[in-house]
Simulated scan of single mutants.
Amino acid sequence: MAKTIGKMAEKTPSVCETVNGLLDKKGFTYQIMAPEDLHVFSQLSTGNIIQRITIPYFGAFAVIKYRLKQIYESVESLTDEELGVSTLLAYNGVTVKQESENFLSLHWTADPISDMVSDSVVALVLNASREMRKMVVDSEPVVNEEEDTKKAEKIVYALLIFLFVDVKYREDGKLVINIYGNVAQLDKESRKVKSENEGLKERVKMAFRRIRSAVKPMGQF
């Protein structure tokens, strides 16, 4: 048995409602509390790690915005008042800034979800840069297409897990997505989705189409 305390105890959860918090054990007593209450009910404190990365990019910022919207439904346009630069907020966690004509910067608070989102944004920006270089340079660039394809597959798989949680590979290479007992099978080669649940089928099909169009390396994936 665990007791909720602090802000967690202000509202009684309904039946089957998920409760998220920190579990604190003192002897044989268990308590669940909100992260911001940790310093109140214990001698511990929490802290955040702010991540920042700079990516070379010479194209239009609108291209990145368009591609981000293909993957994430929540993409918000902002303006950095201090720097006066174009800014995007992806999935309420990762900030993308065009700090100059030569590079973009990403800022986010480290956590499993934001780290995954930031990885996908980095891959998206690098792929966009590479595709634009192919349009303006006649000579063929040196690209390891096999390695890029493997990286793209890993990113697609990670994004599918981010969206649907329970995603597993079958022996034949197909992906099985399970949501509360509703199962969908995704064939990445044919891009076909099979499921008895039409809603899940269309959701998986749309998600894979968006992810693929934004993450594919040089059109090879």
Rank of each mutant, 00 (worst) to 15 (best):
G219D: 05
I64V: 15
D119K: 08
L78N: 10
T95Y: 14
S45Y: 09
E145F: 11
I50K: 08
K7S: 09
K192V: 06
V125Q: 00
M8T: 03
S129V: 05
L126D: 03
Y157C: 06
T109L: 07
S195L: 12
E131I: 06
L106C: 01
L38P: 01
A152M: 11
N102T: 03
M8E: 09
E82Q: 15
S42C: 07
G47A: 11
E10M: 06
N20Q: 10
L78W: 09
P13F: 04
A123E: 06
I155L: 09
N92I: 03
W108Q: 00
G59M: 03
Q220W: 10
T46Y: 06
Y157L: 12
N92E: 13
F61K: 00
L88I: 07
P217Q: 10
K151R: 15
V215I: 15
E101D: 14
A34M: 11
K205N: 12
I55D: 00
I55E: 00
V156F: 10
N92S: 14
T18M: 14
A152I: 08
E73I: 09
M206Y: 13
D80M: 03
T12I: 08
L104N: 00
M218N: 14
T109S: 04
K11R: 15
A128F: 04
R133M: 15
E171L: 09
I155V: 15
F58T: 15
A207F: 05
P13Y: 05
G6K: 01
V15N: 05
E196P: 01
E76W: 07
K65P: 01
K25C: 07
R203S: 13
Q51F: 03
D166A: 09
K151H: 14
S14N: 07
V183C: 06
L186S: 00
P112N: 05
P112T: 07
D111M: 08
L78K: 14
I177A: 04
G21P: 00
D80Q: 02
E196D: 12
M33L: 15
A152L: 10
T12M: 05
E196V: 08
P56C: 05
A184P: 00
A110V: 04
F221M: 15
R210Y: 09
Q70M: 14
I5Y: 04
N92L: 11
K25I: 15
T29D: 10
V143K: 08
E146I: 14
V142C: 08
A34I: 05
G59V: 01
K3S: 13
T109P: 00
R52M: 07
V122K: 03
Y72T: 03
P56R: 02
N144H: 08
S213W: 09
K150P: 10
L126R: 13
